[in-house]
Amino acid sequence: MRKPNDLNYLLFIFPALLYVGYFSFYPAARAVYLSFQTPHSHFVLVNYKSLLYYGLSSAVLNTVALTVGALLIQLAIGLGAASILLREFRGKRVFSALVIIPMGVATVVAAVTFSFIFPPPPGGYANALLELLHLPQFNWYANTLASLFTVMVADSWKNTPIVTLILLAGMSGVSPDLYRAAEIDGAGALRRFIHITLPNIRGSIAVALIIRGVSEFNIFALPLVLVGYRIPLLTTLTYEFYSSASIGDYYYSLASATILLAFVAAFILVVLKLGGGRR
């Protein structure tokens, strides 16, 4: 029989590649190209200059802050949940099913729910809990930082499960012998976690951070519902211009989208570089 060659099998992959080329790469390139235009002139920076006036820098800052904060929360809870899932205990099957449920909940549903838990003051479910415990009330949108934190908590609810599963896959690969040896040497659970678990799942942590990092940059529905346009992010700023009827605003939205794309592209380059050695 003839030895199969790459070219024949490449034909099977080709439709999918053509599809993503036409519907993803081509529009992305068009967005970048059009962002340097206006209805009247070619290759100008005027869209970007106007964006600076309309609060581009705070949108970038807020997006970066939101990304970093959300990643830290998800990593912390994910590490905890994965460490629990690594052990045998009664009710583990139920627990592991519960842990993935938020993953299946649509972002907009999470947004509705958290708008009941963290509504604008006064009251809401979270403050009702605080009141029940005789703790002081909290304005979840008192300032930019508080608002961003509220969005982070809501976002982490939905996205911690993915982080947990990626970290769990990494932790399951660590040899139990390492733990046993450390235990014999007298290392406690915390020291074993810091000196054995963490270094050995570096790769999984990196994967989780990258995957979630890109998504955090694209976070859209949740802030749109919870804080609207008050705290601009790159996505909500883009959408605000897009949904206005003016043609000039359409070009601003392209410029703002291009900046978002630049951040995501930087992320992607880092990933490809990290993965490069292994390919």
Binding site: P27, A28, A31, L34, F220, L254, A257
Partner: peptide
């Protein structure tokens, strides 16, 4: 790829 970037064009 950000959905919002692709959707606009």
């Amino acid at each position: 790829m950000p959905a919002i970037v692709i959707a606009i064009p």
